[in-house]
């Protein structure tokens, strides 16, 4: 925080109950307490009183992240299934998703602006594109790690390729697939903070409105982390329900 910004805030008109330099929306009775005026590290009173202003952007960002990961998951898993029996497709698909992954997010948003316009999908498309690499790679590893003897036994007992996939390969690849999903979720929640640049809103919007006010920055940071943790926990819970065999202790 620059000294200039602090000085500006310090010069706040106490009678006005509003720190100059803050947008009108940030003016509040707590402004005079000194914490806000002095731009203290974290003003609890202000944060408590202003919590509502974070609720909508929080759920907006959650929506962006969840929809992005969901789309990315469906596409990446589809690609993994497509290349499952066509191994020659794996290197080009890893290359392609890798290229998508390297495009800087801001550049990606601006590339899409002329096509999809300012808004939700301009943010969601790049974010889902980023998840492809992580989820696809993990799914490919998951399928490759299915024990060859389980596959052989399944075929040998008369499972069709579809039955083998649904009853044997997919369940056994689930731990790796979910590991990829978890990485994708955490990184997408983080990058979704930039979705406001594409005009999709989210917590980043509040950051852009006031990037000097420490309490605001910390609130956004903490809420983003909380969002990532909650989603991660939900997926972890799903994994435990889906893979009960991993929790049993080996004999002896």
């Amino acid at each position: 925080m620059s000294t200039l910004a602090v000085n500006t805030l310090a010069a706040a008109d106490a009678a006005n109950k509003c720190a100059p330099g803050l947008p009108a929306g940030f003016c509040h009775e707590h402004a005079e307490t000194g914490c806000v005026a002095g731009n203290g590290l974290f003003c609890f009173g202000w944060a408590a009183d202003n919590f509502d202003r974070y609720v909508d952007p929080f759920f907006r960002q959650l929506e962006i992240a969840v929809i992005s990961v969901a789309i990315g998951f469906v596409i990446a898993l589809g690609l993994a299934l497509l290349s499952h029996r066509r191994r020659f497709l794996v290197p080009p698909l890893i290359g392609l998703t890798g290229v998508l992954y390297t495009i800087p997010s801001v550049a990606f948003f601006f590339l899409l602006l002329p096509i999809t316009g300012f808004g939700f999908w301009t943010a969601v498309i790049p974010l889902s594109a980023y998840t492809l690499q992580i989820i696809y790679r993990n799914a490919v590893v998951g399928f490759a790690n299915v024990p060859a003897d389980a596959r052989d036994a399944g075929r040998g007992m008369g499972m069709s390729e579809g039955e083998l996939l649904l009853k044997v390969e997919l369940p056994l690849a689930t731990p790796e697939i979910i590991a990829g999903l978890r990485i994708a979720i955490v990184s997408t929640v983080a990058v979704a903070t930039l979705a406001f640049l594409a005009g999709a809103g989210g917590l980043g919007q509040l950051l852009s409105e006031q990037n000097n006010f420490k309490t605001n920055i910390i609130m956004i940071g903490v809420l983003t982390i909380v969002m990532a943790l909650i989603l991660d926990l939900i997926v972890l819970l799903c994994q435990r329900l889906l893979t009960p065999w991993l929790r049993v202790r080996a004999a002896q």
Binding site: A153, M157, V168, T243
Partner: peptide, 30 residues
Amino acid sequence: PAELRREIGYVIQQIGLFPHRTVGDNIATV
């Protein structure tokens, strides 16, 4: 092939039990 294999018992060296299925479910496969 699938129909034929369901009528022929199959045991392999590594046993090839499905690790994600219980003993009962493994036996119930065919």
